[in-house]
Design a protein around this nucleic acid. Structure first.
Lengths: 212, 212, 212, 212
DNA sequence: GATGAATGAGAGTTCATTCAT
DNA sequence: CATGAATGAACTCTCATTCAT
């Protein structure tokens, strides 16, 4: 009996995965409105009606897609072991972002940024689960470092948003420029390090640089 | 006789304006697919069919909207008197962008970034008329400055893309965070200056900083 | 004054011609519904609105086109000098029809046969001005000949309709078969004569044939 | 399992029939352009969208209608057992055509003759599946008969086209004249026999007639 | 649970007709 | 008289959603 329950659950999870994978691909490719349920159904190997068993509407399916897209980068914010060291955290975060792990998720999210803006739920999820925590964590780290006296005082709200901006903006630029972008031809390492250095030097206090 | 011609042309221009204004608003608000021609017609005070006298299809209307949205920021790239001085150009560009002038155009463009990505023509316009010229101009300035020996050598392709990213990313962040964002509460001047400083310090050579 | 009147009338007639010519071409090419007034206007070198000065509606323009298309073949029925001789009349009629004169008008009319059927006015004109008079005239001639005793008695209504059918059917066949049709490669004379002979022999009484 | 498949197929066939019947009626009545899908849907007792499940566009539905209208007369050309005897074949063909079987199909086809002319696919179907085979078959029979020496030598291409023309033309005449036409008041037999006789006498060699 | 045929509202687009110039 | 911009009804076609099987 319990075995049957278990099997049911397994199938249910599998179905959700199937649908979510297909939906993500189609939504990213075509945007919310131009994506169609029959198309998503086909790609997931299911019938149109089946989609509605697992997600009550197209809108909710979209929300679920955004929710899942937000999980990976969110996790990487919090599982981050670097502790309170701003410099290393920054480096790690940026490498991470630039790195392969997010190479997929971030562009997908940003391809949908317009639709996220217009969809209240998706917007909330994106803001509250990803953007705000990220900014908050960065800000805390920055402030810790400030206290230790090594770095220049800037508006913390501003500096973290500049850092966030770079990550968002680079993804979009890469996307707009396409294959021909130098961003696609430099090594991920190099990109991440240069960004880090730029920011860290920019934040350094007078005189402390040579010491480094 | 010629007077009549003139009047006709004037009306034609006025109609194009009317439609473009309405279309921009609706497209930004709802995205390409969810915007409807009847809605745009209504907002511009014209009948549905009239739209098609001036723009042969919804797609072409969209292209025209993007084209116009791209003009203002494009102009500011090239009318810019700062000449070859990287620091002052950077400051000016950033102030400009952050400033009121673009406050409208850039967010509008970026609200449509997903649709631009998916529409070949819009994408071409955006890339070739705005993104590429901007990056090229910045790169040239950066290289000039490099020669004068004052600043750190980085990958020029990278540094200009970081700067571009900040501008793109800040706009999106502002947009995502909405009213509550600190970016909406700090003065534009302050934001621009901090970004500039961060970048300029970040680029400065060892030792040259104290001199400043 | 009267001169001015005259000039006005001349222009009016010219305009009617212009429009009718263009309309005939477009209607034949595209059928009633797919022909558009702007298109007809363009082809006639006038503005859309001008059409409506001379014809109050598309429907009436269509009627006028049919009316004019019917005039030429109608005339040839009645101007026909052959008098009461069935054989020569038949030959003449058929040559005429097959000949260059109608080469244009009949196919045009039959290209619109569907629309004529569906349009009450056009139908009436076609039936009453062309089909009925033709059948009546032919029938009278056949009956005259019958009385003279030379030919076989058949249902007169039937025989004239068979003759009419051949003329209608040949035009349509030519049209359907197109360039590759033998009808387009045989001389008009030959076709007309063979049809005539077939009918005349078919009608001849036993024994009278050798005499011929 | 297979039972379900079977039932589905049955429904699919039924739907195709339903739609085709309604579409034929409406197309014949109004012509291609004036027929509307909602109207056809209503007449077939289905919703607008359902039509598009079975036929991907109005044009393809039209093609299907023509294709079906062409089948019946086509079949009668080839199932015809009369073999190589010209006289009896002719009689049979004409009776058939004049007869009840085609009473419906031929007028329907010819009501759409204008649209068939303008639609490449429909035109091809009509020409290649109906007109050409018919003419070819008739020509072969005529030539056989010629060899047997009983009938007059005419251009075979011509004589078969005259026969075809009569069939086409009579249908159209009947249609144009409407209820009041004598063609609607004479018995089908009588009409067919008179046509046959006219042609056969017309083709007969001198002298052979009395023998008959 | 899974299916996919059926629905019908609503989109983009066209064009007969009007009317101010 | 001549113009052609403006109108809006009506068309074809799509797709989120439902429901009988």
């Amino acid at each position: 009996m319990a075995e049957r329950e278990l099997r049911k659950q397994k199938i249910s999870i599998k179905r959700h995965e199937q649908i979510l994978n297909a939906a993500t691909e189609i939504f990213v490719q075509k945007g919310y409105t131009d994506a169609t349920i029959p198309e998503i159904a086909k790609l997931s190997g299911l019938a149109t009606g089946t989609i509605y068993i697992y997600y009550p509407s197209k809108r909710e399916l979209f929300t679920a897609v955004i929710e899942r897209l937000v999980v990976t980068p969110t996790l990487s914010i919090f599982t981050n072991k670097a502790g309170n060291d701003f410099a290393s955290t920054l480096k790690e975060v940026i490498r991470d972002r630039v790195g392969l792990l997010q190479k997929n998720t971030m562009p997908q999210l940003l391809a949908l940024i317009g639709e996220i803006r217009r969809d209240e739920q998706a917007h909330t999820i994106f803001a509250e689960k990803l953007v705000n925590p990220f900014l908050a964590k960065m800000e805390k780290m920055y402030c810790n470092r400030l206290e230790s006296g090594e770095i220049r005082r800037m508006q913390p709200e501003l500096i973290v948003r500049i850092i966030g901006s770079i990550m968002i903006g680079m993804t979009i630029l890469e996307n707009i420029e396409g294959e021909s972008s130098p961003l696609n031809h430099l090594s991920q390492e190099q990109i991440a390090d240069e960004i880090c250095n730029l920011i860290l030097y920019g934040l350094m206090k007078s005189g402390s640089r040579d010491a480094k």
